Structures are given as C-alpha cells and as structure tokens.
Simulated assay, not measured.
Amino acid sequence: MPRQDNLSGSNSEDSDPSVFFLTGIPGLEAMHLWISIPFCSVFTVGLLGNCTLLYVIKTEPSLHQPMYYFLTMLAVINLVVPTTIMPKLLSIFWFNSREISFTGCLVQMFFLYSFASMESCVLVAMAFDRYVAICNPLRYATILTNSVIAKIGLAAFTRAVLLTSPVLFLLRRLPFCQSHIISHSFCEHMAVVKLACASTNLNNIYGIFISLFINGLDLTLISLSYVRILRTVFSLASKEEQLKAFSTCVSHFCAISMAYTPMVVTTIIHRFGHQVAPHVHILMANIYFLLPPMMNPIVYGVKTKQIRDKVLLLFQGKNF
C-alpha cells in the first residue's frame, strides 16, 4: 500500500526535529477518501452557516443587541476553529500530505485551543446575558452596554492567550529525538507530548489544570446563571410567561450541550476507555471541534425569528 510506504518512509526523516507527520485516522487509512466526504460536508455547511449568520446580524438593525453581539463572537470562533484543522486534515485524506513543521504544529495548536477557550468564555457571557434579560429585564440595557460587551470579548481573548501560551513554551523546551509521527489527525497536545524523549510531567499537569480550570469554572458559572434563571422563571405567575422565558434560553442551552457533551464524552473515553480503539478517540476529538460550528447557526437560525425571517428573505430575493 502506498500510504504505508509513505508513512514508513517518513521514519528516515525522524532525525529532523523541525518536521512531524500526522497520521490522519489511524487504522482507517484505507477509508480516508470516504471519511473525507462527511468531514468536508460538515466543514462546508459550518462555513456557510456562520458566514450567513454574520451577514444577517450585520445587515439587520433589529439584531444589534447584546445577545446577538455575543452570537457574532461565537460565529467568528466557529469559523476559526474548524478552519484551523480542516485544510490539513483534508490534504491528508485527499493527497496523503502528512508533513507539518513543528512551528506549524504549534501555531495550529495555539489557534485551536485558544479559540476553543474563547468559545467556552463566550458561552458563559451568553448565560449571563440570559440571566440579566430574565432576572433583571429593566436594567438589561444599562448593564449590558456596548462597552461592557467589548470588555467581555477582550477578557475572553486575553484569558485564552494567557492560558494557551504556556502550553507552547512547555512544548518547545522538550527534545523530540525519537519518532516524529503524531498518532492523530491534528496537532493534539497530548499526542505531541507523547513523542518527547524527556520528562513530560509538567506538560501533563498543566494540561490537566487548564482543562479543569476552563471547563470547571465556566460550567460552574453557567450552572449558577441557570439556577437563578430557573428560580425566576418558576416564580412567574402564568404558564405562558414561563414558556416565553424558557424559549429565550433554548438556543443557548443547545449551544452549551453541543459544545460540552462531545468534550465530556471525549474526556471519559480518554481517561477510562482504555479498550476503545484509537480511531474512536480521534473521531470524537474531531467531532468536538467540527460539530458545534455546523450546528450553532442552524439552531439559532431555526429558534430565532428575526434570523429565520431575514434568511428566508435573503434566499427569496435570490430566487427572483
């Protein structure tokens, strides 16, 4: 098989510390071309959906509100994250182009993890937006001003950069004197760390700390927001008011579920599923980064009347 020859031939270049080789989906190399079809479809739908969402929010004055500013941030993140990994992944699937420089690997890792961290922070901000809208509706406009929204966005970016940068510095200090074949479809942190021929305890500890800090803190804040929201909703007099209040949170709750469910499943499989095949781990990791960017614009487009109506008008206008 030419794929195997290429991969085995790459061992002769393992002495070059600046070059690494991605394997794609280990164990499923013969099916790479077929696997690329759903991957490319999901990627394309995500790009079109998020670009459409950004255009609709920009051109529709009624959507120039805090909730949709946060949605704009989420859409931008949902464009960057899959674009960070998919071009290289598709080049592996279609052209067997596995080579990636160590610098390119670090750049991919930085964008992937920093923007994933920003996504989590934006979801917290959106939970806060729903909390203010439901629990303090009369102060909504005074609390969530454009200045406050900009500061939240800056805080999300700053936190992401400050927490992700040490990962890169810790990796750069490691010597890679053995195999340079990364058993993954992208430069996943632990897959690269495993190739080092020195102690990686600090890398492992920091990776676990970042995962627990970001996911633990953000999920706690989201949960606290929804506890307060539920208390307020259940205190409303009529069922109609309760349903109306709940309906404003459905899209955000779906976004949270899509962002955190694959992450939780991936973590459980990674920590406890030692008998699970490697390709399952890698497929789940890709789903974690590709599924939410595709589904978020669909969910918000279906559940938000202003967005739905604007999209329908947009496509109807093209038909005439």
Rank of each mutant, 00 (worst) to 15 (best):
L243I: 12
T248P: 02
T261G: 03
T267E: 01
C254L: 09
I287D: 00
R228W: 02
A255F: 03
Q242K: 15
I282G: 02
G273K: 02
K244G: 13
S235I: 05
P292E: 08
F234Y: 14
E240I: 11
M284F: 08
P262D: 08
S225I: 00
I229H: 05
N286L: 09
S235G: 13
S225F: 02
S247N: 15
A237F: 09
A245V: 07
L243Q: 15
Y288D: 03
V265D: 05
A245Y: 06
S257Q: 10
H281E: 05
F246A: 13
A277W: 00
S235V: 03
I287C: 04
Q275F: 06
H281M: 03
L283E: 01
I256P: 00
H281I: 03
L291V: 14
Q242H: 09
Q242T: 10
Q242L: 09
V264Q: 04
T267D: 00
I256L: 14
Y260T: 09
Y288L: 12
C254W: 12
I268F: 10
Y226D: 03
I256Y: 06
Y260D: 06
L290K: 00
S257P: 00
T248Q: 14
C254D: 04
I268C: 10
L224R: 06
R231I: 05
I256M: 07
A245K: 06
E240F: 09
R271I: 04
Y260N: 07
P278W: 01
H279A: 00
N286D: 13
C254G: 06
F289W: 06
E240M: 10
S251G: 15
F234G: 08
A285G: 08
R271L: 11
H252M: 09
V250S: 13
R271E: 09
I229Y: 01
A285V: 02
T232G: 07
V227W: 13
A237N: 15
I256E: 08
A259K: 11
K244H: 08
Q242Y: 09
A255E: 04
Q275W: 06
S238V: 04
L243K: 15
P262I: 02
